[in-house]
Amino acid sequence: MKHEINFTLNGEAVTCAVDIRKSLLEMLRDDFELTGTKEGCGVGECGACSVIIDGRTVDSCIYLAVWADGKAITTIEGIAQSDGQLAPIQAAFIEAGAVQCGFCIPGMVLASDQLLKDHAQLSRAEIRRGLSGNMCRCTGYQKIIDAVQLADAKRQADPKTVVLPHFKIEQ
């Protein structure tokens, strides 16, 4: 059975008649061909499928597609600027050498970006806690944490790069 939903995807208003059994991950990959979002487990264990929904990092594999109705969703394809310039967190991942196989990276980048948006300043311990839901088998996390710290340091040095939080629901 299909159900029509309307939501904002990477800043654009979209409509989709989606199979009600599908996960958000499946809808993003199959119906929108946004294959930057990866599946590492399909059951909410690894964080590879992380996307941002209304200012929160969510495992899209255990989030029903129909729940996206009315929400604002950001995927890895949606955080660079429209002219293709990398977001500060993407640039920091490259500079810090945080990327290896890259399979965890879309989820890591999004989770890191949201973490930065949620905190005016971050300690390494806070970064560790904030990224604890995202697994990586390649890096030992060292350079991923370095990357988030680098992005944090850069925005402290240059307040212009501070990006205001996305639309966020307070509970």
């Binding site: 930057g36 599946e39 490259i94």
Partner: peptide, 23 residues
């Protein structure tokens, strides 16, 4: 030299195609 890996940009953009990503 600590050259950046050539594929890092594609990977942080979600543009890198893995086996399951080809249409």
């Amino acid at each position: 030299q600590a050259e950046s890996r050539w594929d890092a940009i594609a990977k942080v953009k979600g543009q890198a195609n893995y086996t399951g990503d080809f249409p």
